[in-house]
């Protein structure tokens, strides 16, 4: 009886979390333009989507920004984590504090403060400022995903590799990296997720009419959102879910082979 109650509760929570997503996906197949009324099943918006330059550009921007931000966050974050792991005392707490700063700082403050910085530096606002800002809030996830994996390493493993004749570079790439790789991927996935999900920071730092999907949705929201947006979001959602699934499966497989 209690088990059934627990299951029901979990189901209710998941229905709550997924309801808007299901509605979005459902209405991407709606023949009518209204977001409230169901007119019948159709692929009309998917067909029109590919002719819509603005939306396709916004989609391209969203994907490009997320990929670049996640790759840089994972790579630089991993290198930084190896450095942080060695630190002690005030230096370590200093670096950890600036690592948590973007996580704890409200989105809106990150957004406006970076906007001010970009304006003050006359940094080109648009694609460049979007990528820089997404790297900035993605980097901490790259670091904090790798740190626990480093803590799990046998501290002697690096020296053992050197004793066995590896150069430090070989020891890093052939011994340490494979062990912390799951953490690196977690960092990549988290930074990617944060980037795709972000609206607030992008909204403030963009300029020169450059828009990602979130910004396009916001600028459309007063006139009513074009159903093509539902279609493009559905496609992106499915693509990201498939990508995550494949990466997870490969990770699990490789971690099983490693054991």
């Amino acid at each position: 009886m209690r088990a059934i109650l627990k299951k029901c509760y979990l189901w209710l929570i998941f229905i709550f979390l997924y309801a808007p997503i299901l509605v979005l996906i459902l209405f991407s197949f709606n023949v009518s333009r209204s977001r409230g009324n169901w007119g019948g099943l159709s692929l009309r918006w998917y067909g029109e989507l590919f002719q819509d330059r603005a939306i396709m550009t916004a989609l391209g921007n969203t994907v490009l920004i997320a990929l670049v931000a996640a790759a840089v966050s994972a790579a630089v974050g991993t290198v930084a984590a190896v450095g942080i792991y060695r630190l002690k005392g005030w230096k370590k707490s200093f670096v950890m504090n600036i690592t948590y700063l973007p996580i704890l700082n409200p989105d809106i403050v990150i957004g406006i403060s970076m906007m001010i910085l970009f304006i003050a530096m006359s940094f080109p606002r648009g694609m460049a400022s979007l990528i820089v800002s997404h790297i900035t809030f993605g980097l901490p996830y790259g670091v904090i995903s790798v740190l626990p994996k480093l803590a799990q390493l046998d501290p002697q493993i690096f020296d053992a590799a050197l004793d066995l004749g590896a150069t430090p570079r070989e020891a890093y790439f052939k011994v340490i990296l494979p062990q912390i790789l799951p953490g690196v991927f977690t960092g990549f996935l988290l930074a990617f997720t944060m980037s795709v999900d972000d609206f607030v920071v992008s909204f403030f730092v963009t300029g020169n009419g450059v828009a990602n999907l979130a910004i396009s949705i916001y600028s459309m929201s007063r006139r009513g959102i074009n159903p093509k947006i539902n279609a493009v979001l559905t496609l992106l959602f499915i693509a990201v879910a498939a990508m995550m699934y494949l990466i997870q499966r490969r990770l699990r497989k490789s971690s099983r082979e490693a054991v």
Partner: peptide, 29 residues
Amino acid sequence: LIVLFVVPMWMNFLARTYAWLSIMENNGI
């Protein structure tokens, strides 16, 4: 189960929030 809590974030935050409009409007679901 944990992954199921992260999956919604692959649909942008603003899009998900906007979808509540279609659920809660006067002529909504």
